[in-house]
Structures are given as C-alpha cells and as structure tokens.
Design a binder for these strands. Structure first.
Length: 771
DNA sequence: CGCCGAACTTAGGACATCTGAG
DNA sequence: CTCAGATGTCCTAAGTTCGGCG
C-alpha cells in the first residue's frame, strides 16, 4: 500500500468525524432494535440525499448537454421513479451490522492505518495491473430485445420415455429432430445422415450423444426420467491403533471413538498454519467438546494442554505408506475406484447415461472457510442416510439406503437438476449432487449463458449510452445504479450481494462496496480522476486497481461518499436486486454477471485477433493464446497463490538460461575461430566447419530464446490463474474457431475433460465463428 | 416489496498423476 | 530411470440469481 493511500484514509476518516451525521448516533443503539431503526433512518437519509443530489447536480451540470427529445422521455421516467420513491419503495434495506464492523475496525486500527493492513495479511499478493480495451465494436445495436429459444420445444411424445429402451429409439428421434433443425437453422455444417446409413454411424452416435442437436425443454422441466444409485458415503471412522496416543496435560488419555475422530481431524492439520489461529481453535474446541463423553468433557478443558503429536505422526506415516505402495497395490486401488465410479458415478437421464459430478458425500472434518472466516474450525458433521433427500423419477428404480437405514425423503421433482441433497451444518445451506459439466443439462445451460452474452453484445452500446446518461440523473438511486453498472462493465466486478455478518468472511462485490474500499485521487501518477480500489472479493481474493474514470463518475463518487463513515455502503441506495431488475428491463435475461461473461469473451476474441501472428509457428501461436487468456484472467481478477516452488523453479530456470548463455559465448568464439581458419585456408573442410558451428550457435540461441520466453511466461503467470476464465467465462467457440483457423490442434488448448465439457462447441463452431 | 431459501455457477487450493530433461 | 515441475482431477466453499411467501 502506498503512503498516500494511508494518508488518504486517515484524512478521510478525520473529515468524516467532523461531520458526524445521524449515522453516528445510531452506532450506540442496541442491536435488537437496529433493524427497524435502520430502515427509517435510511429513509430519512434518502430524502435528504435526494434533495442534496438534485441541488448538487446543478454544480456538476456544466458539462451536461441536454438532448431535448430524449429529455422528455427521461423526465417521464424520472417522474415515474419519483412516484415510486415516494412510496418508499426504493429504500434500501440492508441488515448489515455496521456497528459491529466499525467497532471491530476501531479495535484493529485504533491508532493507525486503514483497512489495507488487514487485507494484505489475509492475502499477501496484490492484484496485477489489468488491461481491458473497449472492444471496437462496429456492430450496429439493435433495439429489439429478443431471446429466441435456440431450439424448438421438445415434443410431447417424449413424456412416457421408458428406461428400458435406452438408446435405440432415441437415435431415431435425434435424427428426426435434427433434420428439422437443420432446415430451420440453416446450419452451415450440414450433417448428412440418412436413415439408411448403417450400423457404424449409429454406434458412434450412441457413444457421443449430440444433445445440442435436439430440442430443449421449455417450461422449467429439467428431465422426464431420472434414475441413479444414490450417493457414496464417506468411509466410517477407523479408530486409531492402540499405540497412537493422545495426551492431555502430559498424561495419556484414551478417547472414545466419537471424540477421538474429531481429535484426529485436528491432529491431521497440525502442520497447517490455521490451527494456530484463535478463531479456529476456539470454534474447534467448542465443537469438539460437544462430541465428548461427560468424563472427557470434565477433564479436557484447555486446548493448549492437548497433545495431538502422535496422531499427527500417525497420519503422516499413513500417507507416506500410501505413496510407497507397490504398483500392484496401487493398481488394485485404482480398479476399486473405477468400479465405484461405474456403479455410482452415472445416472440415466432421459434415455442417456450421464456422468455425475460429485457422487461422493463430503466426509466429516473441520470447516475451513476462505479468508478470515468466523466459522473456521467448526466441526463439519458426518452425513448419514437419514440426512439425505433423494430426487429421481417415480417410475425409476429408487436407490436403496445402506442396510438398516432410511433416507430422509425421496422426492420426484423434475423441475430441478439435482439427484441428491442434504443440509450442511456450518451455514445451514443445502448441498447437492448434480451432473458432470459434460452432461446435457449443464451443457445446455452453459451454451445458453454464452448466447445471452452475445445478445448483450448487440445491445451493449445502447446500454452504455444509457448508463452514461444516468450519471446525470436527478435521482440518487439512478446515479448510483449507473455508476455501479459502469464498474461492473468496465472492471468486470461481480454484482456483490449483501451478506450476513458473522456468518462469512467480510468480502464485497460492486453493490456492496463500502466507502473504505475506494480512494479518490483527482490526480495520480499523471492521470486525472483516478479511483483506487482495494477490497477483498470472492474467496477473499484482493482486488487492487487504480482506474482513471470519467470526470462525471468521479464527481458522483464524491457525492456518494459525502457525510459517510468508512464502513458505510458506497451505494447506499442500491443492491443487486434493484440492479438486476433494471438490467432485466434493458434486455431479457440480462443480469450483472452477464457483463463478466460478455467482457471476458469479447476480450479474448479481440486479443486473439491482435496477438496472433499468422507467420509464427504453432508454439508461438499458443503463447499468444495464453497471453489473450491471461488478459481475460487479469480482467476478471483470477488470482492464485504463487506456487510454493515458484522461487526455486524460477531460479532453476535462470540457472539454465545462464548456462545456455555461456554455451553461446563459447560457440561464438569457436565460430569466430573457424571463420578465421577458413579465411586463411579457404578449403572445404573449414567451410563445413564454419557452417556447422553457425548452425550450432543458431540452435543454442533458439534454445535460449525458448527458455527466456518460458521464463517470461511463467513470471507473468505467477499469480494468475487461467483455468477459471477458460472454464467459466470464455465462449469455447471463440477458441475453437481460432484453432480451426490457424490449424492448431484443439488438444493444445483444451484437455480431455475440457473437450468433454465443450463438446457442443467443438461440434458446432467453425473457423468463422464470431462471438 | 423485502426477505429468505433453493438452486445453480464460479472459485482456488490440495492432492494425484503424468512427463520429459538430465 | 528419477525426480522436479507441469498438468489434471477432486473437493467444496463462495458467489449469483430467482421465485415464493408474508
């Protein structure tokens, strides 16, 4: 964190202190009453702000030029909004407990700096600089918003699918549907496949079902038939052998299996840093004691007197032993695993065998949330059959629970995609077993996601024009919405839902940004109107970025921050639901996250165009691809902890480079010598020697280049994770089109799993595909 | 209309397995 | 052949969105 960031923070808080507003009184209200009070306070504040904003908008209006025709329209809208506002409907109602946050903050930072300290500790690296060029979009935006279904609805004759006739009938149907579709969609790639085309073709089609050539369900039905074998439970606890001891206060103590199991969870983790954290230890100890027998509970009262060392050693030895297993043993284990996969890893959904993603129930253990999680260390309990809800077809073979046990419930809900669910005990949220990304049900959704993003592409200019216009709105709420949307669009921020405090780590997204998360600089490093962002986002990954913004945005931010405490919401009149409602009106299916998908994909496409050099070889082109991918990862702030071995491996590489350089020096000298010889002797032998020396030198130089490129690549990738964007944000058809265009084998870009996930795209994208 | 739970996508880290340079 | 580093898989936490309910 830079010095001026710190001073800025301090200045801010001082400034705010002198302007103590209604907020500060509120701080001392008892918590229980807070909820309602907050609401009415906010309403007051809203009115006040509203006044304020309309008066101050005069101040900011010097650069405002009004388009009269549009103004009329706008005014009408404002009128509407104002009416709504009078109802109190636009009040923001957050039940975030700011008091607490403030107190905490005061505790931590009583004397000095801002939030930066904490942030750095939590996640030691800073965000790399990000680039995102605005796509030079020559597209003419269309006004019409239509989200035409990609396919026709399924026919009703599918209703009584019977599991028995699993595939043969289906192939016929697929063909029928496909031919209809081909006519309708005028697909460039026509697949010839008359019904009389032999068994081989049929077989292939069975192996690789092309669900994307079939119609989709409409009306929320997710499947017509679903059969599976239920989940695989975590193996039961195996008590420790008698020679592995637990000590309390130096004395050996035999724990009963139930509390022993929980002890092993802690013992296994001894090497992890977080077993030293106070919250972790406190939560663990509390939950552990709940599992103890009264006698144990009476004795074990202080975690510091517990010695898990032997337990720790035991598990280390176990994992060592696993590594040392013979080939045959490993093979056997692998086969058993495979058998389990074959039995439980697949289900039958609508006549097709589909892979299940997570068919194993999460084993018990100690919860470790990410970042500074208030619940870290709590016991994640073992899931039993009686906790499990099974979802499948009525007419399917219903999975049987383990002997002597019962499911919590068996239901037949074909409006959802999950096969199994249970409620987890840490947050009380529901967990699911669902299908693999290669499945129809996931693939269709994925495809649709990119289609929505492409629809946004057609409208984005209009939407941008609109939110720029809204920066001038008389209404605070509209301005906040417009500025937030600008951030979401320009910086690919996440929407930022409100979170319940004390339940999760303190992280934010766009709508939940607080005043303390940004710093305004009228001038910074030679740039005007710079906003400095510094906050923890999803997974407590730090987002740090300095962005020059338009003057109007800057002025708006100043306005939003007026009379606020650092821990107050920046966009106090906005939340994700308001924002998304607005977006929904702009385009069918538009939500905040679509901007991330759109901007990621368009950035890839444009970077690929820019970086690919037709004359270069495959390796160089792939490097370009990775660079393009990296640009997206940076945009989306996909970070990773630098690999543990990074420094070392970098050093090794450097050593290699140095060695290579030395070799080159040597080769140069030799070449020189050979040349000199040739000059004197002019004979064939010498000429050949020169030639070969030249070649050798050339080869070495090539190798050096390669190493240096590798080093750069690795350095650039140190903190950047490419996988997330590749898997979730980049329309696979862009990459596939690029591969086809430049003759790059798809395997160089997508591994086997990824090719399975993106099979639909591989099949349908040709080299002309444009996102 | 706001709140909350349900359902589903997105996310990084741990661990296992593969690979290719020495 | 060996081993380090790269790559792939698994795991499950942490987001977003939506719809229903009071």
């Amino acid at each position: 964190m830079s010095v001026d960031h710190l001073t800025q923070l301090n200045t801010d808080s001082r400034l705010n202190d002198s302007h103590k507003s209604s907020k500060s009184e509120e701080k001392h209200k008892p918590k229980e009453h807070k909820h309602k009070e907050h609401k009415s306070k906010d309403r007051d504040k809203d009115r006040e702000k509203s006044k304020h904003s309309s008066s101050s908008s005069k101040n900011h209006s010097n650069s405002e030029h009004k388009d009269s025709s549009e103004k009329k329209h706008k005014d009408k809208e404002r009128e509407k909004d104002k009416v709504k506002h009078r109802d109190g409907s636009s009040d923001k109602h957050k039940h975030k407990d700011k008091e607490k946050r403030k107190e905490e903050k005061d505790k931590i930072h009583s004397s000095s700096s801002g939030s930066g300290d904490r942030i750095k500790k939590e996640n030691g690296f800073t965000s790399p600089p990000r680039i995102k060029q605005e796509p030079d979009d020559d597209y003419i935006p269309s006004i019409k918003v239509e989200n035409k279904p990609m396919k026709r609805p399924r026919e009703d004759d599918d209703v009584d699918f019977k599991p028995k006739k699993i595939k043969s009938e289906d192939v016929k149907k697929a063909k029928k549907r496909k031919s209809e579709m081909d006519i309708k969609n005028k697909k460039s790639k026509v697949k010839v496949e008359s019904s009389g085309q032999g068994k081989k073709k049929k077989k292939e089609e069975e192996d690789k079902w092309k669900w994307w050539e079939e119609e989709r369900y409409t009306d929320g039905v997710k499947w017509k038939f679903l059969e599976h074998k239920g989940p695989v439970f975590a193996p039961p606890y195996e008590p420790l052998p008698d020679n592995v001891h637990f000590y309390y206060d130096g004395k050996h103590m035999k724990l009963n299996p139930q509390s022993e199991e929980v002890a092993t969870f802690f013992g296994k983790m001894l090497d992890h840093e977080y077993t030293t954290k106070d919250i972790f230890r406190k939560n663990f100890f509390k939950d552990w004691r709940k599992e103890m027998k009264p006698e144990e509970k009476a004795i074990i009262t202080d975690l510091n007197k517990c010695n898990f060392e032997e337990i720790n050693q035991y598990f280390k030895a176990q994992s060592e032993a696993r590594k040392q297993m013979s080939k045959e043993e490993k093979q056997k284990l692998k086969e058993e695993n495979e058998k389990l996969l074959q039995e439980y890893g697949f289900c039958i959904m609508d006549n097709h065998k589909e892979r299940i993603a997570n068919f194993r129930i999460e084993p018990p253990g100690l919860f470790r949330g990410r970042g500074n999680h208030p619940k870290m260390g709590m016991l994640k309990r073992r899931i039993r059959p009686q906790d499990i809800i099974i979802n499948c077809s009525k007419d399917s073979k219903i999975p049987s629970p383990p002997a002597g046990q019962k499911w919590k419930e068996v239901r037949h809900d074909n409006k959802v995609t999950w096969l199994v669910s249970w409620t987890e005990n840490i947050q009380g949220s529901i967990k699911y077993i669902m299908l693999n990304p290669s499945s129809r049900i996931k693939g269709e959704k994925d495809w649709q996601k990119y289609e929505t993003a492409r629809t946004l592409k057609k409208l984005v200019d209009k939407i941008r024009a609109q939110y720029r216009e809204d920066w001038k709105s008389k209404e605070m709420k509209v301005r906040q919405r417009a500025v937030a949307l600008y951030f979401i669009d320009k910086l690919a921020l996440r929407a930022g839902n409100e979170k319940e405090e004390g339940e999760t780590a303190d992280t934010v997204g766009c709508c939940s940004l607080r005043v303390e998360h940004i710093n305004l600089h009228v001038e910074l490093d030679g740039q005007e109107y710079v906003v400095e962002f510094d906050f923890l986002g999803k997974d407590s990954i730090r987002y740090y970025n300095k962005v020059p913004v338009e003057k109007r945005v800057f002025k708006n931010l100043q306005l939003f921050m007026e009379n606020k405490q650092p821990e107050d919401d920046l966009f106090d009149r906005l939340n994700t639901s308001i924002l998304n409602k607005h977006l929904q009106e702009l385009m069918d299916g538009l939500t905040a996250k679509v901007f991330r998908t759109y901007n990621a994909s368009i950035t890839l496409q444009q970077q690929l165009k820019e970086l690919t050099n037709p004359d270069e070889n495959v390796a160089a082109k792939i490097l370009s691809y990775n660079r393009a991918n990296r640009a997206v990862a940076i945009l989306c702030n996909h970070q990773r902890a630098p690999p543990k071995t990074f420094e070392k491996s970098m050093q090794n590489l450097q050593t290699k480079i140095d060695a290579k350089k030395e070799q080159i020096g040597l080769a140069r000298r030799e070449l020189k010598g050979a040349k000199a010889d040739y000059k004197v002797r002019k004979d064939e032998k010498c000429r050949k020697s020169v030639e070969s020396k030249k070649k050798a030198l050339q080869r070495l130089e090539d190798q050096l280049m390669k190493l240096e490129v590798q080093a750069t690549d690795r350095e650039e990738n140190k903190q950047i994770a490419l996988g997330t964007s590749k898997l979730n944000y980049l329309d696979p058809r862009i990459s596939i089109a690029w591969c086809k265009k430049w003759g790059i084998p798809i395997e160089k870009i997508y591994n086997k799993t990824q090719r399975e996930k993106f099979a639909w795209a591989i099949d349908m994208a040709d080299e002309d595909f444009e996102f």
